[in-house]
Design a binder for these strands. Structure first.
Length: 605
RNA sequence: GCCAGAGUAGCUCAACGGUAGAGCACCGCUUUCGUAAAGCGGGGGUUACGGGUUCAAAUCCCGUCUCUGGCCCCA
């Protein structure tokens, strides 16, 4: 078992490394890539001023894969203007020569910006703390307030591309005016740029929205409104496997299933505090028998009602209750995105009610569960301990300390290292969030474990302890998939639509060479089906070339081809996804292999 | 929600003021074939929806819905 896990992890790591290779840029030249990109953002700004006189400038930093610069322009910027800007950048770069840094006093700086009418830059210069240096960087007669650092000159070889235009609020605050942002990227070599662009193409190819259409996995509909996912049968099959796996893990760890309604009286959410703290994200009330009801945005109040239904003894704790609970949240239209950001989604939600003493053990249990689940899908992950927020939060300092200590202790027990996310906790308690890395090297937030001091208080939860005293239980919220929709969307991209055998919507396709071999194939299909495998028998009149093409298009893991030779020897010719070479094996041997792959939830295929 | 762009057959796209088209998919007939598209034929669109301009609108204008890229927020 241990070696099997190691093999899984190794396989996943190799695939991650291979795919991520595209985005790792080697360090070269005397300046880091981020410095080059920052300088190219200046170059772009100077080009924009040349082409759009009267432009106001915001900020223009380097970011993870490139840079951006925010502008306020007299006219809307269209994507097709990017080429013009690029050409102007090349023209300026040719004659630019050196990049020169000058230091000024606050007054001098303000005067220089005033002269050019740069209102955003003026605001920026005013917010530079006293005592800090105020510098400008200039090239080709164009200067910008900037702390640097920058490359020394523009006549070095470098390669860039402007990518897209977008809107962005000044200083990220939606009360401020919206500026136009141009994103781009830059590299020291042509090859690195080409490699990065190839990686972006690969990301595009793996986009779950495209694959979702191509593989007939899911859809959304204008008739239903944005943010609601319709799972097609093929993705339904994947989800059933995910749910089965999920439940197997939970059952083995002492969780019990609960089921709660989707709608409840508004008063329930008033008691829970959701109305007050979460109201903007909740759907409007509906009147039932003249009383207001709400669609649930979270599952916790429902689980609490079950807890409260009778007195609880310390003997029962910890209680671990789990539900695949579908919740609905009003998300602003602009944030919706495929399966990754939706308005209705199913959380693999669970609430653990326990004593303070039990907390570290419970946390360790959850973390182990997270690790087992994520690694089965081939994800690497990082765990972050999120501590008390600076602004409002509830609970005494002592309670927070104890909970954080319990989270740390639990993580140590489970052998999971924690990064620190200072002040990132919820107002009601500290938490551990997981970021998992997919095959393309991108990070996603899914799993979370949260301590909650708020709800037990609000609902006055209690248990009777050994000494007969009523005490307050601690509540742990945790979700591992987070949202089935989001996790599945990430999975589609992670696998590029090539689901491993255990998850594949169709696991095996049988292809008879002639009609006469159809009966043999149907028999084998029935055998495989009886094993619980998802099989299709392609015994219609089409030519076999076409069937192979179709099955390959659907990314079916195994094609079994049977003609005269196979029928005679009770064999099948196995054509494995993405493998040129094929082998002819006894059917029983294939069946055993398929069983094994499914049972172990192998990532190998 | 905000800024910008877009919505034509199931999918990918063409037509960009003058009769809405192609490839793939789908259906039918023929073909029974040894490894990634067999041949022939056929059906399918109130051009997202609603209004307007015009002799004439997929095409121009306005509104709504949905989507895309971002901002903000988040599972």
């Amino acid at each position: 078992m241990a070696s099997e896990k190691a093999a899984k992890a190794e396989n996943a790591a190799a695939s991650v490394a291979a795919k991520a290779a595209g985005k790792v840029a080697p360090l070269q030249s005397p300046f880091p890539l981020a410095t080059l990109r920052h300088s190219v953002s200046h170059l772009m700004a100077s080009a924009v001023e040349a082409l759009f006189p009267g432009a106001q400038f915001g900020f223009g930093p380097a970011i993870e894969h490139g840079f951006y610069y925010d502008f306020e322009l007299p006219e809307p910027l269209e994507e097709r203007a990017l080429e013009r800007i690029e050409n102007e950048m090349r023209r300026i770069a040719k004659k630019a020569g050196a990049m020169v840094c000058s230091e000024y006093t606050r007054e001098e700086a303000a005067a220089r910006l005033e002269k050019r009418g740069q209102k955003y830059k003026l605001e920026a210069v005013q917010s530079i703390p006293a005592g800090e240096k105020i510098t400008f960087y200039a090239h080709a007669g164009w200067e910008d307030l900037c702390e640097g650092p920058h490359i020394d000159r523009f006549d070095r070889p470098f390669f860039f591309k402007l990518q897209r235009v977008a809107g962005a609020y000044w200083r990220g605050d939606e009360k401020n005016p919206m500026l136009q942002r141009v994103y781009g990227t830059a590299f020291w070599t042509k090859e690195d740029l080409a490699q990065h662009l190839a990686w972006l193409e690969e990301v595009e190819r793996c986009d779950h929205r495209h694959l979702g259409t191509e593989l007939d996995l899911f859809s959304h509909h204008q008739e239903a409104g944005g943010g609601f996912i319709f799972w097609h049968p093929k993705l339904g099959a994947v989800r059933r496997e995910m749910e089965k796996f999920w439940w197997d893990l939970h059952q083995a760890r002492g969780y019990m299933p609960v089921y709660t309604p989707h709608v409840a009286r508004e008063t329930l959410f008033a008691v829970s505090g959701h109305l007050e703290n979460y109201g903007d994200l909740m759907y409007a009330p509906m009147a039932i028998d003249e009383l207001p009801y709400r669609v649930k945005p979270m599952n916790c109040p429902g689980h609490i009602l079950i807890y409260q239904n009778r007195g609880r003894s310390y003997r029962e704790l910890p209680l671990r209750w789990a539900e695949l609970g579908t919740v609905y949240r009003y998300e602003r239209s602009g944030v919706l995105h495929g399966m990754l950001r939706v308005r209705g989604f199913t959380q693999d939600d669970s609430h653990i009610f326990c004593t303070p003493e039990q907390l570290p053990g419970e946390i360790a249990g959850v973390l182990e569960l997270v690790r087992t689940l994520l690694s089965t899908y081939g994800f690497e992950f990082t765990a972050y301990l999120a501590t008390r927020p600076k602004e409002k939060s509830i609970g005494t300092e002592e309670v927070w300390e104890r909970a954080i200590a319990a989270l740390k202790e639990g993580a140590a027990k489970a052998g999971i290292p924690l990064e620190l996310d200072e002040g990132g906790g919820a107002f009601y308690g500290p938490k551990i969030d997981f970021k998992m890395k997919d095959a393309l090297g991108r990070e996603w937030q899914t799993s979370t474990v949260q301590c909650d001091f708020n709800l037990p208080e609000r609902f006055e939860l209690s248990f009777t302890d050994k000494d007969g005293a009523k005490k307050r239980p601690i509540m742990v919220h945790r979700a591992i998939y987070g949202s089935l929709e989001r996790f599945t969307g990430v999975l589609i991209e992670h696998y590029g639509g090539k689901f491993p055998f255990w998850l594949a919507p169709t696991q095996v396709a049988l292809i008879p060479i002639r009609e006469a071999h159809g009966e043999y194939c149907r028999e084998l299909a029935a055998r495989l089906g009886a094993e619980g495998l998802r099989v299709t028998c392609m015994d219609d009149a089409a030519h076999m070339n076409k069937k192979i093409k179709e099955a390959a298009h659907d990314k079916v893991p195994f094609l079994l081809i049977a003609g005269e030779r196979e029928v005679a020897e009770r064999k099948v010719t196995v054509r494995q996804r993405d493998l040129e070479q094929q082998e002819s094996v006894p059917f029983e041997e294939f069946l055993e292999r398929a069983r094994q792959l499914a049972r172990t939830r192998s990532l190998v295929l």
